[in-house]
Write a protein that binds this DNA or RNA. Structure first.
Lengths: 217, 217
DNA sequence: TGTACATCAGTGAACGCGCGTTCACTGATGTAC
DNA sequence: TGTACATCAGTGAACGCGCGTTCACTGATGTAC
């Protein structure tokens, strides 16, 4: 994942070996620190130990590199959510559906707080709502955060927690709530809030969404 | 409000007359078009018809200008909310409190959609939670969006719609939900959604928040 | 009312910076025969 | 197995750009007497 893991340019070699990956990894490191604006093509080549324009053998321009970095960041969000989902224990279907739904929100916010730069990067370009972004293959999650949320809501519907009208548009409403807290926790006034209080807020928000969507009225 | 309203530099005059305001207005115009990153000091002076470094008679640096632009953008959000609040009709206190609460959310999202650049600018610097930002005096709203939301929640509490525990942290939870939809509607995947559908979503979201906070459980 | 002078609010030119990108080039690699 | 050659993936130098900021300066304004 880190630039070091793939290695800088093996010293003395004229051909890098895997410059494309090295550039993307460098881009991810920059994004981690400073968000999408911090992804600078020249700096990426510097970190890879290579001349500035070598990047153009692998990317059409800076935006193409950034795009790939963003896609990778999105996968990282998805992995955080999946990690949270994996912890939901077996239980009655309806309870389980509900628990999984909450886990999606918690995983999302957890990631935003742990990796604010990557989080902002993940949503720098509008997320593709339907198709998964893995052409990358091995190691990458096949699902994006939005799909994980949609699936969770489908399960709630299947479990009878949501009727047809409540289900309609629910992903957008739920996503909004969770995304908003994530953003405010990163760059808004909640930035300075102690972690424990933010945990409470996360729980409270996710519970509110659950209740607001679920209770008929 | 617009640069034209204050006027460019009165031609031929050595002293501008009100350069500070002209620069802020120019900054607001840039922010309106391209968000906070688009607020460029040199361009502001160009628009005011003045040499680049004349700005330094009025602002310490670019950030100082941007800061003032952001404050003004925040006031604009507050005004949008107040416009929405003004339309809430007289009715039983509890109903009215609820209607006013919803109006805050609707006004917030309405502004974000109408002026995405200014909206992003308004929250570029973390909003000051407690104090109102009007040193500006005349014409500026004395309240910021967060205060308007807090007041609405206080009214709901007074009307008996919220108990003590539900009230605690409610502004953050409510704000998150509304802010999230605003952001997704501007720069996220909801960007391309037809206006009517976004209106529905806004209603649905605000109703969800109301219900989620309000119903005891 | 008139003048001297301090202060204020501009000018004009220049600085260094780091960026993305393009050019003509060359060393390394791998494939056909 | 050995060699010729096309292709690939780098080099090194340079470009123009627009930015924020600083310098020494001057024209305009307003106040004290």
């Amino acid at each position: 994942m880190t630039s070091a893991a793939v290695g800088g340019k093996p010293s003395g070699r004229y051909h890098h070996g895997d410059l494309r990956h090295a550039l993307v990894d460098a881009g991810l490191d920059m994004a981690r620190t400073g968000g999408p604006e911090a992804v600078v093509l020249r700096e990426a080549t510097r970190r890879a130990g290579v001349t500035a324009n070598a990047a153009y053998r692998h990317f059409a321009d800076r935006e193409a590199l950034l795009h790939e970095v963003c896609t990778r960041a999105q996968s990282a969000v998805a992995r955080s959510i999946e990690a949270e989902l994996a912890q939901v224990r077996e239980q009655a279907p309806a309870d389980r559906a509900r628990a999984r739904f909450r886990a999606v929100g918690v995983g999302y916010i957890r990631f935003a707080r742990a990796e604010p730069g990557l989080f902002r990067t993940a949503f720098f370009f509008p997320v593709d709502l339907r198709r998964s972004q893995s052409e990358e293959g091995a190691g990458e999650s096949g699902r994006n955060p939005f799909q994980l949320l949609s699936d969770a809501l489908d399960d709630m519907r299947a479990a009878g927690l949501l009727d047809e009208t409540a289900r309609r548009g629910a992903e957008f409403v739920a996503w909004s709530a969770v995304h908003g807290l994530a953003i405010l926790a990163i760059s808004g006034p909640l930035r300075a809030m102690p972690a424990a209080r933010l945990d409470d807020l996360t729980t409270k928000l996710v519970a509110m969404v659950d209740k607001g969507l679920t209770s008929s009225g």
